[in-house]
């Protein structure tokens, strides 16, 4: 499988010192088509800067970012936007039209699609997401506006979907609604890159995690493995998800280590407990 996104020795600075927020350096990673990746780290670690480097909003001062063979320094953001869709934390910065239908159509109009195709795609998304097409976006709830912002990105069919803290300010139901949508898109082949502070969400949805601290990548690997690395978690100022934390604490006890040392979800814990109970009953 060839890499869809490639960071090759990328550095970027807003003209600030290396210990300040927004500085990233020595970023080397690649993401394949269809992956679901989370970028995590404390505030000021460089996550948002990295996400803006992906779609060319920021151009690297050193190194090279390549999106499906296009180097971001050589192409305008408007061209890269056809491949990379980005959902920001605040939907109100994105929504700029008077009705849901107009908002959904906006991205397609920019791309110069024919009116018939715009109409059919908007109709499809409206029925898929369950929107009221004539409603004003500003009368929707925060979660609904975020969903509309996601839909107006998704309608353009990007190959890579970048989510910059998409669940901030949402309740659990709204959060899951958005995240389940991203999972469906990922299953259909969209590469999803998510920046998120909610480690429970990261564990539930991301297969791979890139951990950043002070503008550099300090770990890159599968979700459960990364969360179990206490040294990495400490350096990144991140707390592991609750179930992994419980598992790690139980594994500190010699008598429980073998049985409880490896679960990372409630289902896995229940399975272990069920086995343990039935073994005890048999004995």
């Amino acid at each position: 499988m060839s890499a869809l996104l490639e960071f090759d020795g990328v550095c970027f600075s807003y003209g600030r010192k290396s210990d300040e927020a927004g500085f990233v350096c020595d970023l080397n990673f690649s993401i394949d088509k269809g992956e679901y990746v989370a970028i995590i780290g404390g505030n000021g670690a460089g996550k948002t800067t990295t996400s803006k480097l992906i779609n060319g909003l920021l151009k690297p001062s050193e190194g090279r970012v390549t999106v499906d063979g296009l180097t971001t320094t050589d192409h305008a953001v408007s061209k890269l936007a056809k491949k990379v869709g980005m959902l920001f934390q605040d939907p109100d910065r994105q929504i700029c039209k008077n009705t849901v239908r107009e908002e959904l159509a906006f991205g397609l109009e920019i791309r110069g699609l024919a009116a018939d195709e715009i109409k059919s795609r908007v109709d499809e998304v409206v029925s898929d997401f369950g929107f009221a097409p004539g409603a004003s976006p500003f009368t929707l709830s925060r979660g609904e506006r975020q969903m509309l912002a996601l839909a107006s990105v998704v309608i353009c069919d990007p190959e890579i979907l970048v989510l910059d803290e998409p669940t901030t300010g949402l309740d659990y139901r709204e959060c899951m609604h958005i995240m389940e949508r991203t999972r469906v898109l990922n299953e259909k082949g969209t590469t999803v890159i998510m920046i998120c502070h909610d480690m429970e969400v990261v564990l539930d949805f991301a297969e791979r995690i890139i951990v950043m601290a002070q503008g550099r990548i300090i770990a890159d690997g599968d979700s459960a493995g990364i969360f179990r690395d206490e040294d990495v978690m400490r350096k990144a100022s991140v707390l592991p998800p609750m179930m992994i934390d419980l598992s790690l604490r139980l594994s500190e006890r010699a008598d429980l280590k073998d049985r409880f040392g490896g679960f990372s979800s409630v289902d896995e814990l229940l399975e272990i407990l069920a086995k343990s109970t039935s073994a005890r009953a048999r004995s």
Binding site: L57, A81, K82, G85, R93, K97, F106
Partner: peptide, 30 residues
Amino acid sequence: IMESQTARGVNFDTKNPVRKIRLMIPLCVP
């Protein structure tokens, strides 16, 4: 807001002033 719209594909770098104004007007809403 401009960054958000640029990420959607709006090209603010156009040299046509009329087109630029037409692109900027919707930004007044957000």
